[in-house]
Deep mutational scan, measured.
Amino acid sequence: GLEHMADEEKLPPGWEKRMERSSGRVYYFNHITNASQWERPSG
């Protein structure tokens, strides 16, 4: 619901949600550090 939507907005600075086109899996990418990970970043 709306709570989940708001929660997605609160990623740490630099992080954004991305989708891997080949598999459709969602991952997280940090455009500041060029880091990427499957787990939702905390902090």
Rank of each mutant, 00 (worst) to 15 (best):
R21N: 15
E9A: 09
A6G: 11
S22G: 14
K17D: 01
M19W: 15
E9L: 08
G1Q: 12
N30K: 00
E16K: 04
P13Y: 14
V26F: 14
V26R: 04
Y28T: 00
S42N: 11
S42Q: 11
H4M: 13
M5W: 11
D7Y: 07
N34R: 12
M19E: 08
W15K: 00
H4I: 14
H4Q: 13
A35R: 14
P12Y: 02
Q37N: 02
M5T: 11
R21G: 14
R25Y: 04
E20N: 07
R18H: 06
I32M: 09
P41Y: 03
L2Q: 12
N34Y: 08
P41A: 01
R25G: 02
M5A: 14
R40D: 03
P13H: 10
S23E: 04
G1R: 12
W38D: 06
T33P: 00
D7H: 10
Y27A: 01
S23A: 03
N30V: 01
R40F: 10
E8D: 13
P41L: 01
S42R: 09
M19Y: 15
W38G: 03
I32N: 08
L11D: 09
P41Q: 00
D7M: 10
G43A: 12
E8Q: 09
R25E: 04
G43T: 12
G14F: 08
L11P: 15
E9F: 08
W38K: 04
E39T: 09
W15Q: 00
I32L: 10
R40P: 08
G1I: 12
W15R: 00
G43F: 14
P12I: 02
S22H: 14
R40K: 11
S23T: 14
N30T: 01
L11K: 06
G24I: 01
A35S: 10
S22Y: 10
P41G: 01
R25S: 03
P12V: 01
M5K: 10
E20H: 15
E16Y: 04
P12N: 01
M5I: 13
Y28V: 00
R21I: 15
W15M: 00
P13D: 09
W38V: 05
R25F: 04
F29Y: 14
E16R: 04
G1S: 11
H31R: 14
A35Q: 15
E8N: 10
R18T: 03
R40I: 07
E39D: 09
E8C: 15
H31G: 05
E9W: 07
S22E: 15
F29H: 07
Y27R: 01
H31I: 15
S42K: 09
N34F: 09
I32A: 08
E16W: 03
G43W: 14
Q37H: 03
T33A: 04
T33H: 04
E39Q: 10
S42G: 10
A6N: 10
Y27C: 06
Q37P: 00
S22K: 14
K10W: 14
Y28P: 00
H4L: 13
S42D: 11
G1W: 10
R18V: 07
S36D: 02
M19T: 15
K17M: 11
E9P: 09
G24S: 05
N30I: 01
R25D: 03
L11F: 03
T33L: 06
V26G: 02
G24Y: 03
K17V: 10
P13T: 08
P12A: 04
S36K: 14
E3F: 02
Y27D: 00
K17L: 09
A35T: 14
S42L: 11
N34Q: 14
E9H: 08
A35F: 09
R25Q: 05
E8K: 08
S36A: 11
E3I: 12
R40V: 07
G1P: 11
S22L: 13
P13G: 06
R21M: 15
S23L: 04
E9T: 08
E39S: 06
S22T: 14
Q37K: 03
F29L: 03
W15Y: 01
M5P: 12
L2D: 12
R18N: 02
Y27W: 06
K17A: 08
H4N: 11
E20A: 09
R21Q: 15
S36E: 08
W15P: 01
V26I: 13
E3S: 11
A35L: 13
M19Q: 09
R25L: 07
W15L: 00
V26W: 14
F29S: 01
W38L: 06
S42C: 15
D7P: 10
E3P: 12
E8Y: 05
S22I: 14
E39L: 06
V26E: 07
E3Y: 02
E3M: 07
G14P: 09
W38A: 05
N34G: 15
R18S: 02
R21L: 15
I32R: 07
A35W: 10
L11T: 02
N34A: 07
L11G: 00
P41H: 00
G43R: 10
V26Q: 05
H31L: 14
N30R: 01
E9K: 07
S42M: 10
A35G: 06
G24M: 06
H31W: 14
M5Y: 11
G24D: 04
A35I: 14
N34S: 09
W15T: 00
K17I: 10
G14D: 05
A35E: 13
S22M: 08
S23F: 04
G1D: 13
D7V: 10
G1F: 12
Q37M: 06
E20K: 05
S22F: 11
R40Y: 08
E16A: 05
S42T: 14
S23K: 04
G1Y: 11
S36Q: 10
K17N: 01
V26P: 06
K10S: 13
S22V: 14
A6V: 13
E16D: 03
N30S: 05
R25T: 04
N34M: 12
G1L: 12
Y28S: 00
S23H: 04
P12G: 03
V26D: 03
E20L: 11
D7F: 08
H31Y: 14
A6R: 10
E8V: 09
L2T: 11
